[in-house]
Structures are given as C-alpha cells and as structure tokens.
Simulated scan of single mutants.
Amino acid sequence: MAKTAFLGLGVMGFPMAGHLAGAGHQVTVYNRSPAKAEAWTAQHGGALAPVPRAAAEGAEMVLACVGNDDDLRQVCLGPDGAFAGMQAGAVLVDHTTVSAEVTRELAEVAQAAGVAYVDAPVSGGEAGARNGQLSIMCGGAEADVARAAAVIGAYAKICRRMGPVGAGQMTKMCNQIAIAGLVQALSESLAFAQKAGLDVADVVEVISQGAAGSWQMVNRHATMASGSFDHGFAVDWMRKDLAICLAAGDELGAALPVTALVDQFYKDIQVMGGGRWDTSSLIARLVR
C-alpha cells in the first residue's frame, strides 16, 4: 500500500480519493475549500493538509484532480505547491484535463526536481468516479505509468499508457472531440423523432441495436427527451476542454470543423443559462 496525497475533492476527486482509502492506501487530502476536505476525512479517515506542499510531504505518489491549467499550476508550483514538498523519486499524477502546454511545463519542473510526472486524464464522468469505473489514459515513462497504474487501479476500469508525457492529454482530446459530435448528432436525431410524432423510447430501442447505437444514446436519451440535464459533466467544463482541443488542432494542423461548430452550440447553451447543465443539453437548442 502506498502513501499518497490527493489534491482536489470536487465531484470527481472526492470519490476517487475515497476509492484509494478503501483500497488500503494511506491518503492525505487537500482541497481549496477546507470544508470538503473535512467532510472527506470524516467519511474516509486519512488526514487533511492546509496546503498542497504539506499534503505531498513524504508521499510516494501525489494525485491531482482540479479544474483547469491555472488551478493545476496553483497546486503544483510555488512555496506551498506540491513540488515543494515532494521527495525525489516520487510520482505526480495529473488527472485534470489540461492543455498540452501546461503538461509540458510541469513535466519539465518535475524532471528538474527528480520527480516523475504522469498525465492521466479520465473519462467516465461522476458516475464512473463513484463506481470506480473510470477510463484512464496515461502519458509518461513506462516505469512511471506502471507505478501509477498500481495505485489508480482502485478507481479504473481501464488504465493504459498511450505514450510519453502529453500522450494522455492528447488521447483525452480525442475523447472530447468524439463526444462533441456524437451528442450533437444524437440531439438532432431525438428532436427529429419528436417533431415527427414518433415515440422516442421506441425509436431508440430499435436504432440503438444497430450502427447508430452508443453509450450516450442508451444512457441519456430519456433524460434528453424530458429536458433533464443534471447528470454530470457541465457545459462550462466541456467548453474549456473543447478550447484545448481546438488550440491543439491549430498547433498540429488537424482540421476540427465539427468540433468548432459544436463548441459554438455549447456557447448557445451557456447563453440560455445552461452553463451548469450536463453536456447532453445540446438538444435544448433544438426543441425550444
């Protein structure tokens, strides 16, 4: 069992850190809002730290799951950041979906400090985190990813090395690009069915058995048709992720026309007041 630190106890990090404790790892947590850290330790035991540096001191592995590039920099860098407390040979695992730029930046800082760095964004949403069924895509040296996998297996359905540092974030971009187009197509299909006077449940039961079937169709069609959008990953976060994808596409010379279009559709949802709705809310533009 490993001595670990977990930084960030949001809707994903809270249950992920809980799975670590449940698997027998020694866990110290840090959260920007101390009340969440207090609630976590009340439920799972372990310890809480006032700053990331204190959480990271003596830890073999430090895991971060925060909001964006700036949040990740804040918990890693500076006199109170995790790197200031990590010992040489420890591993920092970043579960945040962030840009390739900040991944390269922090990996360089880690290397200079003798600390291993693994970028390991996750897919599976809040339900996957609660159930310990996340898909985790890792970038880093083979030995470093193997060390990380032995710990994060506590909440992973699949954990795979995709290549060197940065490959995990690039794979997560592929994931978000695929989801964006898929949810828009599903939204159009369901809205079309409604306008045609068809029974949405019957339509989905038939077409989900063929080439059109998807996880989103099976698990979200009913709530999409009813206008219920309180099921996890928020539009505001999706737009953050799609901005990362589009910037990387420009850097790589990869055309992402559908992704760019759907990003603007999500902007429409924000204007409608749906920034905290889940990503399936794209249908709300079509059924007003």
Rank of each mutant, 00 (worst) to 15 (best):
G125V: 01
E105H: 13
L63Y: 07
P15F: 12
H19A: 13
A82P: 00
V183H: 05
A167Q: 05
R288T: 12
L198A: 14
L63F: 08
A284E: 08
M61P: 03
M217K: 11
A59N: 00
A196Q: 14
A193V: 13
A141F: 04
H95G: 03
V91Y: 06
R130L: 12
S281M: 01
G163M: 06
R53P: 00
S280P: 03
H231Y: 00
E126A: 09
G168L: 07
Y155L: 13
Q169V: 15
A113Q: 09
W237Q: 08
A47F: 13
A193Y: 13
A64D: 06
R160A: 09
T97V: 09
G114W: 01
G275K: 07
L286A: 10
V165T: 15
K195T: 14
R161V: 01
R73V: 09
A21P: 10
V51Q: 02
M170I: 03
K172F: 04
L48S: 10
G13H: 07
G249M: 06
D69H: 06
I283A: 11
D71I: 15
P164F: 14
G18P: 11
T103K: 00
T171P: 02
R285N: 14
I158K: 15
V165N: 08
G227D: 03
R285V: 02
S228D: 10
I283D: 00
S281T: 05
Q270W: 06
A39D: 15
D199Y: 13
V235E: 04
H231F: 04
E60S: 05
R160F: 05
I207E: 03
Q209K: 15
V218W: 05
G45C: 14
C76D: 02
D263M: 11
A156T: 00
T97N: 04
L20K: 13
C245F: 09
V66T: 08
E205Q: 15
T279Y: 09
A47G: 09
G163A: 00
T41H: 11
A167H: 04
A143W: 04
R285I: 10
L252R: 15
A225V: 11
S99E: 07
V11W: 08
C76R: 01
Q209T: 15
V66D: 12
R147H: 14
Q194L: 14
G140Y: 02
G168R: 06
K172R: 01
G114P: 08
A21E: 10
M170Q: 02
G45M: 13
A148L: 08
I177R: 06
S123P: 04
D230S: 06
G24Y: 01
T41G: 06
A167E: 02
G18N: 12
W237D: 06
D80K: 00
A23I: 08
V115K: 02
D71Y: 07
V145N: 02
L282K: 11
S189A: 14
A193G: 14
F233H: 01
M12H: 05
K240N: 11
S189F: 09
D119P: 06
G249L: 02
G213T: 12
A167I: 01
K267F: 14
A107S: 11
D250T: 12
T97G: 05
A55M: 02
N131E: 15
A127C: 05
A150I: 06
Q264F: 13
G58K: 08
G181E: 09
D71R: 03
Q111E: 12
M217E: 10
W237P: 00
E188N: 02
A247R: 13
V51K: 01
A212I: 07
D241V: 11
G274K: 07
